[in-house]
Write a protein that binds this DNA or RNA. Sequence first.
DNA 1: TTGTGTGCAAAAGCTTTGCATGTTG
DNA 2: CAACATGCAAAGCTTTTGCACACAA
Lengths: 167, 167
Amino acid sequence: MNNNQRKEHIEEVKNIFSAYLEQKDLRRTTERFIILEEIYLRDDHFEAESLYEHLIKRKYNVSRATVYNTLDLLVACDLVKKHQFGKNQAQYEKSYGYKQHDHIICVDCKKVVEFCDPRIQQIKSMMGDLLNFKITHHSLNMYGICGNCQKKREVEAAKKEVDKQTT
Amino acid sequence: MNNNQRKEHIEEVKNIFSAYLEQKDLRRTTERFIILEEIYLRDDHFEAESLYEHLIKRKYNVSRATVYNTLDLLVACDLVKKHQFGKNQAQYEKSYGYKQHDHIICVDCKKVVEFCDPRIQQIKSMMGDLLNFKITHHSLNMYGICGNCQKKREVEAAKKEVDKQTT
DNA sequence: TTGTGTGCAAAAGCTTTGCATGTTG
DNA sequence: CAACATGCAAAGCTTTTGCACACAA
């Protein structure tokens, strides 16, 4: 993504958030917009804590409580997605202007790769009908070992074999 | 599942766990087998804490630390699955003798329903090949509103409408 | 007998809450 | 100016850790 696209997105999401707050009779505070902007300036996935630290580093005087509160609002109005990739710490990512996607996570190095597959949409609507659920969203995570870590594991295994033979 | 099936399963999983512990040079302690048995006597999903409380209620003198430790071992040898359904508390379920399945969670009442779809296996192997990941497992959760809660929401909405007209 | 596993309690880490203060509508 | 949102710190919850003791191999 280039800087122009980013700036455009920021304008758009601010308008969306503003409309959402108005509709819900919530206040348009400086902090809420600072947090939104900060999220849309960043890429990839982040944790509440790292977002907080980032804001502090930039001399914005916000508290953790406000960060968590605002993240909830942004998730509610669909500008941010919240994930639990198996850790106890939630991870977030901006979602406006992005194609719906899912994640593959390397269990060794924790790298996250995104992917798309249209079949998931089909499963979604079919299962919704079948089980009489009005499905709002989903989370699909694949866990495995990425190419790099596969190599690392092979090297480790080879080392172990050598050790065994030399003792 | 009837009681005979359950008992058979318990014997089988104990053997599997026993073999796993031997292979990994870990000890076959009483606690580890008590916990395994307790899990396979239960149905559905459970949290570490509720398993712990259940064991205490039955006068088994186990500690939380041992419960967590044993759950990790059981996840590692694939006798138990660990889930993060969006809460900060992990949920577990026994997995031996069960068909692989995924979950639909009601965001209102938190009810969990299981479903199967073969397409997810296809996505899994295709994406593994494509991105050069050796995929070990996955987690697919759909979130939405179940039939009951849809009705409840309609009733709520109707009430609100009446309130509005009478004021 | 030896050292791994356990129980207990305390610590750690993420998230939420309570309260006084500040700011929006 | 009234109510809601914020900052701060403390509390709450789940999970992990450290240490002395117990028990499987």
